[in-house]
């Protein structure tokens, strides 16, 4: 997330909230993010080989059917030669929206798939730890061996078997043999 993306996201979010269209804009930004994720689309927006006319056409295609605020944003970015901001705009906008609503993203890393009940209880735990509403996603990582590691925002609660073994290793290395 770049500093520019943060600033543009803040401005866009402020206007969207005033226009009561925060969720619509979020959905449009997500769709935009997907549309520009391919290398070809990236080139179309940032490569110096692309002519202004071609770029304007590409932007027109992207803007078709979007919310008026998003269309305006694309125009501003093109005029200011800041189209690279688009690539980091969605996460920046989303984090602002979530922070405003007291929500936060979380990731559970686990070596085995989790059941619905387990995920729900982990969501509850994450909510209690962070004091916010947490939407968790699951990542499978076999190298953790057991337990789970829970990341909520910038906080990591590591209860995995791997981390416990590392702690034990450090403790054994520091054990005094002369006591």
């Amino acid at each position: 997330m770049t500093l520019q993306a943060k600033r543009y996201a803040q401005a866009l979010y402020g206007t969207a909230v005033a226009a009561k269209a925060a969720d619509d804009v979020l959905a449009d930004l997500q769709a935009l993010q997907q549309a520009i994720s391919s290398p070809a689309a990236k080139d179309q927006l940032t490569s110096p080989d692309v002519t202004t006319a071609e770029r304007t056409k590409a932007l027109d295609d992207l803007a078709r059917g979007r919310h008026a605020l998003v269309v305006n944003l694309l125009g501003v970015l093109q005029r200011r030669h800041r189209l690279e901001v688009l690539f980091a705009l969605y996460p920046a906008y989303r984090s602002l929206l979530m922070a405003d609503r007291g929500e936060v993203d979380g990731v559970v890393q686990t070596p085995f798939p989790l059941g619905d009940a387990e995920l729900k209880s982990l969501e509850g735990l994450a909510g209690r730890l962070s004091g916010k509403k947490v939407s968790l996603s699951v990542q499978l990582r076999s190298d953790l061996l057991g337990g789970v590691s829970l990341r909520v925002g910038n906080e990591l609660y590591d209860g995995s078997m791997k981390s416990t073994l590392v702690q034990l290793q450090q403790k054994l290395l520091q054990a005094s043999i002369t006591r």
């Binding site: 906080e155 990591l156 609660y157």
Partner: peptide
């Protein structure tokens, strides 16, 4: 073993 909390 303690669950470790760290800023990431």
């Amino acid at each position: 073993g303690r669950m470790k909390k760290s800023n990431v």
